[in-house]
């Protein structure tokens, strides 16, 4: 079984593919059905950010095994315009795309680790981890 899955994100239909792949990998890694759904939902939000703001990017999913601790690593990367104010972007209800503004802060809430690296003109990378309990 391949340890890494990559999905290129260019249009809204790719979001569906991305969360399907995420659910498959989470299931293979041993996550409960509830956690698989949470992982799929978080993937949906961060990949939609790519489609809404950057047009194209990539999602990479892999399984982690660090000293007996197992989990899933999710990286969403794009070369879009970047986020000028990350604190503002992570605030509940803030959006410049006419959406609800719950995607990024919501994804951070449901993941064990969440990191957003971005700068204007330098693209955005969201790295999320969820560990098996």
């Amino acid at each position: 079984m391949s340890a890494e899955v990559s999905v290129s994100i260019e249009r809204d239909a790719d979001i569906v593919t991305a969360r399907h792949e995420g659910r498959q990998l989470a299931a293979a890694a041993g996550f409960s059905s509830a956690d698989q759904t949470i992982i799929a939902l978080a993937i949906s939000e961060i990949t939609r950010n790519i489609v809404s703001y950057a047009q194209c990017g990539k999602l990479t999913l892999s399984r982690m095994d660090e000293g007996g601790r197992r989990g899933i690593l999710i990286v969403a990367q794009d070369d879009g315009p970047g986020i000028p104010d990350i604190d503002l972007a992570m605030r509940d209800g803030y959006s410049t795309a006419g959406s609800l503004g719950v995607g990024l802060p919501g994804a951070r809430r449901v993941m064990d680790e969440f990191e957003l690296v971005s700068a204007p003109g330098k693209g955005t990378t969201v790295t999320m981890k969820k560990w098996l309990r």
Binding site: T37, L41, V102, V110
Partner: peptide, 13 residues
Amino acid sequence: QPDVAFAMVQLGL
């Protein structure tokens, strides 16, 4: 579905 409802609540939807 139950899992869907649970995930929505967790995410704040």
